[in-house]
Design a protein around this nucleic acid. Sequence first.
DNA 1: CGCGGCTTTGATGTTCATCAAGTAAAGTGG
DNA 2: CCACTTTACTTGATGAACATCAAAGCCGCG
Lengths: 239, 239
Amino acid sequence: MPESIAHSISKMKSDCQCENCVLRNLIFAHVPETDADVLCEVKKEKKFKKGEIIIEQGAPISDFFYIKSGLVKLSKVSDQKRNYIITIAKPHDYINLLTIFHEKEYAYTMTALEYTEICIFPLNLIIDLTLKHGNFALGIIKKASKTSDAIIDKFIKHNSRNLRGRIAMTLLDFSLSIYKSHIFELPISRKEIAELIGMTTENVIRILSEFRKEDIIKINGKEIEIIDFDRLKMIFDHG
Amino acid sequence: MPESIAHSISKMKSDCQCENCVLRNLIFAHVPETDADVLCEVKKEKKFKKGEIIIEQGAPISDFFYIKSGLVKLSKVSDQKRNYIITIAKPHDYINLLTIFHEKEYAYTMTALEYTEICIFPLNLIIDLTLKHGNFALGIIKKASKTSDAIIDKFIKHNSRNLRGRIAMTLLDFSLSIYKSHIFELPISRKEIAELIGMTTENVIRILSEFRKEDIIKINGKEIEIIDFDRLKMIFDHG
DNA sequence: CGCGGCTTTGATGTTCATCAAGTAAAGTGG
DNA sequence: CCACTTTACTTGATGAACATCAAAGCCGCG
């Protein structure tokens, strides 16, 4: 298998060349050249500015999305009219989850949280490849199911924590998983944090202030600096 | 394709004959005879009594499970030591979700809530079929992703409701989705209801009592009769 | 410049978990 | 089969956690 990858890569099209693209690697590893070429030819790249909506909940499903760069918020209006942020997707995530395989409409609204580049493939082509190439299918399943399971896990973690624990969890998540730095700019508003972890905006602010007063973090608008990692971790563990 | 189904069915093995089995239909519709026969030959059927553990969280993944009959509870001990019931699976559900495709260990403990028959297939055989037969792969994806999405949806619904709304939701769910009757025997204890919707046992009991006093339901031990469907629906909608 | 959305803090009340204590039901071993 | 133990169920009282309401300052944007 390694040699076939090498071969494919040497023959790749110019518009499918991002080297660390998970999807591309999956395609070139498991899909014969001709099919892979078709896919690369129909691929579209779209750029979104901070705040722009990529796709709206309820729109008919027609495409498969892949985050090339940026940050995307997946949200949904619950049956109770309340807005809920399901997750924040990073580069190389398939942001449609698996919904696209069994639904007619997008289940979540996707919004760019910063300048974001999205790769777009017609869904029926992806499904075609899934049908034809087993390894490709399995790769898609593995990646997408990991995302779904992570979301379920996030819900369980939230539900067994108080508000301080949830805020700590969110800050640690941004710091460790997304920005990989103890100092970072929050990509979302206080209101959105509330929607992400299921609490009110006021309490998000209140608890962030508490953390500031307790010298756990420094706040400067949207900029957060984590000073006392250990205490934040303790609040996460214990809260 | 219809004629190939008919052909396969006429040739089916004696231990793969349950007519309404979703998995069997998927196999016979999309997998050639020889492979299907192998699968049927290695299939094991196991029976579990009420309360018996089918598989424990953390055990190494080796098999693919399918519920032939009965009711199965999927639960997990959260990182906070708290027990959490993820969902209650019905006949024809793949109870492993998609975790089995990307993890080494079962993520959830599965427990029979009543007399339950489980069909067991070696996972690597299922993966083999997934690799070889695209339509089979797609069928698995569709079914399993529906389950995952339903779980995510359940969490969102819970989180935007107060306790009365959640209890109403649970009762409606048992009545409409599982037992299809306005009178039924609860398959789980009050404590387990609490673990299913994230609240305390005491409050589950308290609210059930409230509903009884308000003439919305009748309670006789584990037997529940829904008297006032409209009010229960209203509490669900509004709560 | 002013309007609307975001942010912040305080006061208040509701919802819910926790604690306590007692009854009923269901196993368990002699 | 009965004493014994444990587990499930139930109700009440109390306090903590959290939502809601209110009011004011702060931008950014047209």
